[in-house]
Design a protein around this nucleic acid. Structure first.
Lengths: 352, 352
DNA sequence: CTGAAAGCGCTTACAG
DNA sequence: CTGAAAGCGCTTACAG
């Protein structure tokens, strides 16, 4: 047999330059590897004396279990692929933090994949599960319909986060976008606004339709007819927020308030108002969605709908791991609460 | 197709829903597993006929190699831990994208670890290397001196990105912060400014000192004496950018321009000026550092120093993988170029 | 060019 | 409570 490349770790205790294995520990403790394994991983299966003996030997040898060997034997990678389309969006980091925290809690590793909506990249990460380097996939963001196979059955264990793939019934963790949007628009209505514009989200995302539906439902509940001219097509991006706001304000009868599908486009809208010399909220009120960190730094700070992103990430990772463990009676559709957070971008309409 | 010999697995599965292994492929192709392995991974070692035969068998069986088994055998995890302290900072995503792209290029996986500067968390990720689940570590951001052991020798293969651990001589990829800062301040001097403030970075970071040094060097080169009162202690955060700018503008003889250690604090400074009713760049010029995406969205867009973050990430990951492969003659200190990008936050000083 | 066999480092059913 | 042995699924030195 060839000897694999050896690295010289400066381990003072060990005389050999080979990493200590369970066999070394077993020898040191004068027990079998079976017992050594049990003492380390299932202490209740061995006597107290043996446990101490093995623990001490492991300590002395500077033993670190080889996780690859364990994975191979247990047929479990203890790693989860997290697939995001882009990562520059300030919406993601906090979700990812939640995912990472939950994974770490359970001794799982997080394999990060950034797809930039490239089918080849998506496939390469799905292959990681097929190749048993990962046990499951967390899907952040939709627009990955190509991942569905065999009549809408996703081929590997997975949980969707926030976005839902069209027509899939995969486990999912997110919020009730329609109800949240309703609350945001309702706030504007309560303030006295009657002419409320909407900068919509990217059509490719499932939340876009839900938020629009919430907007319409709130208007309807207030007895206000839906006016398609008041909906400017957006894409969640800053630049489009600016142009969409421009379209709305150029209307013969411009809105006195606007509900934006996300904070980033609301921030764009804010900048456009400023360029027009309009004061927010005196001249126009603006409501965002997501509560990204930046919405606190804007001028004025944005009234928005707070999504518990860390919790969503944490819950999604936990759900997937529970699912993989075969936990019974799991709720596979988790809807987390959203809060309307009032800041300085909304006020009663200004009489003109 | 004949049924393979039944194995006594603990789980009673029918042979058809067992994942195909190399042995299945070998049988199908009527060769040994050795030959099958070679045909798939080292085609030049087998005859063309065998290659085709095995490839076809693998295809027919729907074979996917088990990466855990391969890793165990080759003693190589093909995974790299990426350690970041926080991830909400808009500075990181693009670096991470570069890291991910390079890892994918080389068939490595990226294990993401978010430490929040917690020593326990840092250790748990280092253990991933000790446990042979990962081959090396990429360190994004300093403040992790606790990771150094035994006379400044980091215990596992690693490359630092941007930040340097104090006193370490680990491989590193980043920029020349001092020279870049010099260029930023030089730009202000060229515009005619003589009284230039500096909002510094977080003292715990190595780049902070370098950028301050660049600021001082530029002043010195212009024959301007360094005035400590013009340096406001910052921490790279928006809120501190605001208060630091407030300190500077409250000076008896306030600066006509300020060089900020990063964009985020420059953005905070911008908001403070606006609250003071001051116009940027008419009343005060502002230069940032990093060129995060937001610096384009600010009002006015920020003049700043562009760091090639994607490239830095890509180069760092590539360097680590090359190092692990034992590539000879590697340059282990890579300095990437920085560009001054002129936007609308700087102008000649306004006569008062 | 190909095959038989060893072995990477674990865990666990089985027997005592 | 403990040990001998099998086996997870690969790759590769060795021999032919």
């Amino acid at each position: 047999m060839e000897t694999p490349t050896k690295r010289h770790d400066q381990v003072a205790e060990t005389s050999s330059d080979r990493r200590p294995t369970l066999l070394d520990v077993a020898r040191l403790a004068r027990v079998s590897t079976a017992t050594a394994s049990r003492a380390l991983n299932n202490p209740e299966m061995v006597s107290e004396e043996t446990r101490l003996n093995v623990l001490q030997a492991a300590e002395r040898a500077g033993y670190q279990p080889n996780l690859m060997a364990r994975s191979l034997r247990k047929q479990q990678a203890r790693a989860i692929v997290v697939l995001v389309p882009v990562i520059e969006n300030p919406f993601y980091p906090e979700i990812i933090r939640g995912l990472e925290a939950a994974a770490r809690d359970r001794d799982y590793s997080l394999l990060l994949g950034i797809t930039v909506y490239d089918r080849g990249v998506e496939s390469s990460y799905i292959d990681l599960v097929r190749n048993q380097r990962a046990d499951g996939i967390l899907l952040l963001d939709g627009g990955m319909e190509n991942l569905l196979e065999d009549g809408n059955r996703f081929a590997v264990p997975s949980v969707q986060v926030i976005e839902r793939l069209k027509g899939s019934n995969l486990p999912w963790v997110g919020i009730d976008d329609k109800t949240a949007a309703f609350a945001g628009v309702r706030h504007l209505l309560d303030l006295g606004h009657r002419r409320i514009g909407h900068i919509s989200g990217w059509e490719r995302c499932s939340v876009t339709g839900d938020r629009l539906a919430g907007y319409r439902a709130a208007l309807k509940a207030a007895g206000i007819a839906f006016d398609p001219a008041l909906v400017a097509a957006g894409d969640f991006i800053f630049a489009r927020g600016e142009t969409a706001a421009a379209e709305l304000m150029a209307l013969p009868d411009p809105p006195t308030a606007m509900f934006c599908a996300n904070d980033t486009s609301a921030l764009g809208a804010l900048r456009h108002m400023r360029s027009l010399g309009l004061k927010v909220p005196r001249d126009v009120s603006v409501v965002g969605f997501d509560d990204i960190h930046l919405s606190l730094q804007s001028d004025p700070p944005l009234t928005t709908l707070h999504q518990p992103r860390f919790d969503i990430g944490f819950a999604a990772m936990t759900l997937l791991i529970d699912l993989l463990a075969g936990a019974p009676d799991l709720e596979t559709n988790l809807t987390l609460p959203v809060d309307l957070v009032l800041r300085d971008s909304t006020a009663p309409p200004h009489r003109r």
